[in-house]
Design a protein around this nucleic acid. Structure first.
Lengths: 340, 340
DNA sequence: CTGAAAGCGCTTACAG
DNA sequence: CTGAAAGCGCTTACAG
């Protein structure tokens, strides 16, 4: 194995070329599967690579060619399963193109996000998929254009000058409201939480529009704590409001989990005593009882679409900005009934 | 802004040096905050960097120095919230050292894992945190040593020649068994699922040992489907066994979610009609009703510890292999009662 | 198909 | 503190 010697000085393309009795240029061509090199030669070079334990040095290659084969992904909260699913979609399609993805967590803080973008530039990433931190200034968009950095916004947007893959949150809200209204509900609350950003606003406005369209009071909008653990204990907020709602539409799956626990704690049976619609179901939605009726957004697919857009954008930086907005699906399960 | 011109040819350290009237060597020293350079000079160079919009090129630097400032993390299942929490711990401490983390998903497939390790070598990562795919051969360990690749195994291990950060699964099983036994349970099932690996075996053996130590039948070990969605429907397996158990200890939080749903579907109230102990609680454990009593393993902390070990190992490759095994905590909540 | 050569952007002795 | 120079491992015309 002679591993000791090997470690001392890494084997380089020149070593391979010598071992195979070809020039370095030829070895390089074999590496990149050029058709210029004959079959016998190719085999000889490939054998040499194996014999010597050659490892391609992407970093060195990148210095000449302007391609690092790395893309960046920045999300606001890694521990949230929703973003984990998003990432798994991104990783899958980026990985399939042979590139690697650098992962970073902005914690929804703009300064941290700035730092991470800078770090990614230093690493020479070929592009970035960004779910912008709440409060990100729209001037970041100009900066990114200025840098010439291929970037796609995902789930939240700060500017329409950049690519964007998101969800038709407003339409999702209409689905939820329409469904509850069809069951006879008139007092429907919206349970929000967390930082304010485009996806937040689109949901709230979608809710308002949908309620107004049905001549219902759009004003029962209640803010819950950010942390899942505290939401259940704040369930009373739902009933402190002057008009007691008979149903609630949740901002996301975190709120839905929290309220479904909190309603249970108050002795209310969901689907019978009170109706609840979740938003964004993630994998474990199936495991909650009663099963939650939910407006599903499909984070894995969104990740995949964002990755594809980024790959396109890298290949063709001149493209006009593209915006793809995914439809939601209402999954009717067991958490809604007629109002009492 | 002159962004157009800038994009054409990136600004290099030499440009900065010229703009600041110093040599390239000096500019390089400023970059790395060497004390060799005087304050006035430093400020001048830093101003030049700002004026020109200089971006440090880590890739170029790496070619000289043997440091890419990138580490790799390979997990078997990105979409599982347990691994998402693990990653968030890793990303946090690696990020704090100024390095970036390349993320990859092996899908628990060894061939894919081999490919990913190879890719990471090509990217010149400084080290890797690996949760080995099930069925990984222990010879991978020799290979890694041969490559001289700093690596820490996390949660699962294939060889004690490498660093390892894991959990004392066996002790966790003892906690669960002891607790159930103290409530009077004698027929306790173990509900397993998924691929077989060290962490799997340690749990099973821990269960057996703990049962034997109390003179209880250690044989009620039942395999459930891998997918969360199918577990609930397989709950009957619990009762198909010749000796009907009064309690179940779950392999992980996925099984616990599935069975807790399935028991509910059978009209059984958990904590009253049947007792259940979960393993690995993740953030949303708090939101399930009844609240699940659980042996908690703390994935975020494990990620942090693994990252610290890797940083140490990179700094000091000569270190003896270290193995840190984290204690579990039994969180008693509401899912267990006396047997009927 | 192949060889010699230049160059990507940095770091690192070395001599001053 | 500074300048000139070599070199990290690759790719890419260019001439043959």
């Amino acid at each position: 194995m002679a591993s000791e010697e090997r470690k001392k000085s890494r084997v380089t393309l020149l070593d391979v070329a010598r071992h195979a009795n070809v020039s370095r240029a030829t070895a390089s061509l074999v590496l990149r599967k050029s058709p210029l090199v004959g079959n016998a030669t190719r085999l000889r070079v490939e054998q040499a690579m194996r014999d010597l334990g050659y490892v391609y040095n992407i970093g060195a290659a990148r210095l000449r060619v302007e391609r690092s084969q790395i893309i960046g992904a920045i999300v606001p909260n890694l521990a949230n399963p929703f973003f984990a699913e998003l990432l798994s979609g991104i990783e899958e399609v980026i990985g399939a193109t042979g590139k690697a993805v650098i992962l970073a967590n902005s914690g929804d803080q703009v300064e941290r996000q700035d730092m991470l973008l800078q770090r990614m530039r230093e690493h020479g990433v070929d592009g970035v998929i960004l779910c912008p931190a709440a409060q990100t200034s729209s001037t970041l968009s100009d900066q990114i254009t200025d840098w010439g950095m291929p970037l796609v916004q995902v789930l939240r947007h700060i500017s329409l000058d950049l690519d964007y893959v998101g969800v038709d949150y407003a339409a999702g809200m209409h689905q939820a409201v329409d469904y509850l209204a069809s069951l006879g509900h008139k007092k429907i609350a919206f349970a929000a939480h967390g930082p304010i950003h485009s996806a937040y606003q689109e949901r709230v406005e979608g809710f308002r529009d949908a309620m107004l369209a049905r001549n219902l009071d759009p004003g029962i909008i209640i803010r819950f704590p950010t942390q899942l653990g505290e939401i259940a204990n704040a369930t009373h907020l739902l009933f402190d409001h002057e008009t007691r709602p008979t149903a609630v539409i949740c901002f996301n799956h975190v709120v839905a989990l929290g309220l479904s626990a909190g309603l249970h704690d108050r002795g209310l049976t969901i689907g019978r005593d009170f109706s609840l619609v979740s938003f964004d179901d993630v994998a474990d939605a199936e495991a909650i009882r009663p099963k939650l009726t939910s407006v599903s957004t499909g984070p894995v697919t969104i990740g995949e679409m964002a990755a594809r857009l980024l790959v396109d954008r890298i290949a063709n930086p001149g493209l006009q900005p593209r915006h793809v907005v995914k439809d939601t699906t209402l999954h009717i399960r067991q958490s809604c009934g007629r109002p009492n």
